[in-house]
């Protein structure tokens, strides 16, 4: 029901994966000495470095002794750290609830605003009164003219799911639409089933007759 950064995750995992695969494959070909014969066969006019060559020469050590190189390195590190933190923060699931509905927006005659959280609370309360429903969580998105209701319902394992959905559609969504005086743009319901439990409708009848 809460929204996650699926597209962001998949895009960056794919990009980083591609970079690592290309870099790893190229490095492996160079390190094992397989790059030379391969490049000769394909006719590319570039001779790869010998496998006996040092990974980093004196030029690298000299470069990292220069102050401006150190500053650039630290800045690159800072950018990496900020990107990493931003990506980590994007993993927190978000409700993306609507901003307060503007029911009347004429500044001259007065502004009327409605917090969708209040409507969501009312929807949850009403949904919990439906037979078989043990829990409900609602989020209202969109606008006052085109509201979208997303509802997570937890039902008892003996409840008829179609009956509950019928009641949600008719009564809960109907009440919300009536209160906003508009059709819902979208009604989305996620059904969950609570853990089975022994309740008062089950009794044990011991052999011999008496009921406990």
């Amino acid at each position: 029901m809460r929204q996650t950064a699926a597209r962001l995750n998949r895009t960056w995992l794919t990009v980083l994966g591609l970079v690592l695969v290309v870099a790893g494959a190229a490095g492996l070909l160079l390190a094992t000495g397989a790059a030379g014969p391969l490049l000769q066969r394909t006719g590319v006019g570039w001779t790869p470095p010998d496998t006996g060559r040092r990974l980093f020469g004196d030029a690298t050590a000299t470069a990292f002794g220069l102050t401006w190189v150190v500053v650039v390195t630290a800045l690159v590190g800072l950018v990496l750290a900020l990107l990493g933190i931003a990506w980590l923060l994007a993993q927190i699931p978000r409700k993306h609830e609507a901003k307060p509905f503007r029911l009347h927006d004429e500044a001259g005659t007065g502004l009327t605003r409605l917090d969708p959280g209040v409507l969501a609370d009312a929807v949850e309360t009403q949904a919990k009164t439906l037979p078989g429903v043990t829990g409900a969580a609602a989020v209202i998105r969109g606008s006052a003219a085109a509201p979208e209701l997303t509802l997570r319902l937890t039902v008892d394992d003996r409840t008829s799911v179609p009956d509950v959905l019928g009641l949600v559609h008719r009564e809960v969504a109907g009440s919300l639409a009536t209160s906003l005086d508009t059709r819902l743009r979208r009604l989305a319901v996620q059904v969950e089933v609570g853990r089975a439990h022994l309740d008062t409708s089950q009794v044990s009848v011991p052999v011999g007759g008496t009921t406990r």
Binding site: L149, V161, L165, H169, A173, G174, L176, A177, T178, R183, L184, R185, R186, L187, A188, V189, Q190, V191, E192, V193
Partner: peptide, 9 residues
């Protein structure tokens, strides 16, 4: 009262 519906379990 809804234009679109989406029900999942």
């Amino acid at each position: 009262p809804a234009e679109q519906t989406d029900y999942v379990i």
